[in-house]
Design a binder for these strands. Sequence first.
DNA 1: GTCAAGACTTTGTCAGGACATTTGTACGTC
DNA 2: GACGTACAAATGTCCTGACAAAGTCTTGAC
Lengths: 246, 246
Amino acid sequence: MPALEIDVAIDRGSPVPLYHQLAEQLTSAIRDGDLAPGDPFENEVAMASRLTLSRPTVRRAIQELVDQGMLIRQRGRGTIVASPKVHRQAALSSLHDDLVDQGRHPRTTVLQRELVTDAHAAGALELPEDTELLHLLRVRHADDEPLALLQNWLPPSFADITTEELEDAGLYAVLRRRGARPAVAQQSIGARMPTASERRALSLRAKEPLLTMSRLAFDAVGSPVELGEHVYRAQAYTIDLVLDER
Amino acid sequence: MPALEIDVAIDRGSPVPLYHQLAEQLTSAIRDGDLAPGDPFENEVAMASRLTLSRPTVRRAIQELVDQGMLIRQRGRGTIVASPKVHRQAALSSLHDDLVDQGRHPRTTVLQRELVTDAHAAGALELPEDTELLHLLRVRHADDEPLALLQNWLPPSFADITTEELEDAGLYAVLRRRGARPAVAQQSIGARMPTASERRALSLRAKEPLLTMSRLAFDAVGSPVELGEHVYRAQAYTIDLVLDER
DNA sequence: GTCAAGACTTTGTCAGGACATTTGTACGTC
DNA sequence: GACGTACAAATGTCCTGACAAAGTCTTGAC
């Protein structure tokens, strides 16, 4: 059976790398359902010559999809489209953006915005203990339902972040506008019962537990940019991720 | 400042790819503390010529470490060793192996092992609704403290898995011995209060919540191999992961 | 002494080719 | 008909070479 040739338009003038242009167009082709799960995928050599790209370039694009769990490669057989159940990837994205992607309407209220000293947070951010950090406490609603309580500590260079900015966009968008791009993050996920104030802030019912997430994010230079301690209403939120062997 | 030249021995006769041999030796050099965080890393071109490898091969090895958060690359500047806080990676590993890695002593008791029909589980495994699946319910202790309740559904081809095997090793080890190698998995993490029987099985105190993890694992061919619904004592367990941008 | 232009260093992207390894299939042979 | 070999097809590994882009550092003009 001949594999379907996916329509792709490559713009060599664009600053976007060719492999990424290709990967994005292949991704959307699969998401649109042009290829069904189990369908064979055009082989690397054929696709390279059809698109007048080199094989390494095509290969790297395909690898991006394999990493996301959309394609499965098998030496000697070919590449096939994976089950759509796996088609998602845990990414370094913010809750705000995730909600927008899902078509929901997030709303953020800043409860606290102040400069504090906190030995534990400063230590995590690799700063002296007595450094004045920007401490934020926000509550996030989705479609008017309280969803999460977001607590963050930021280095003093971000002390000029305003309440208005934060109610408008996610923290990561604000950071990026200031040229700080979180590149890697370590997350730890757990669960516990809420404190009394958390229960009030999220209007939780009795015996409703919280999903907790603490995150330390680093920029490309490897210096810490943000420490977060977030709690989510467990009944309204799950964390999805795709794992592979490698 | 000249970057330290890490001692590496490459065996071209080995079936292990050169880039992976290199990546492993670089990894252990960093773990052993030969290079401290922030230290400059030997540049790609120099390392390639020193080891008489091509630059793409060296580059691919370095990329493995970057993916694990051990190194940070910066165009025009060089590559540096990242903060050791990030040096872990969420992998497709089993709880059993994780505990052994941490030096703890897991013990597994099989509570149930039976053939059942379950429409939901069969659907997830892409099998007909009335297929007889192997249903397992296990409780796992670490150092004699109850930690997790593990529920799994497996396709009928694994119906010969015995209770003895399962009490001896993790499920994934048993599957691999049978030639089934889980390659990708989708996980969903949440939290909730335990049911009465869960509270008994894990001897939970009042108001102690559970961390829930449901997982659907696929083999290299893309067919489902295992469905799991696991619950963990939240006070004794957290899930750690490293995320990067890419 | 300060600042800007340019040289240099280092990683990022892309091409094209060669060979190895694995899988599936077609064809014989027994 | 069963088994094994030979071949084809596809991905996996590795190489050489070249240029682009970003950051750093030196040099020189003012």
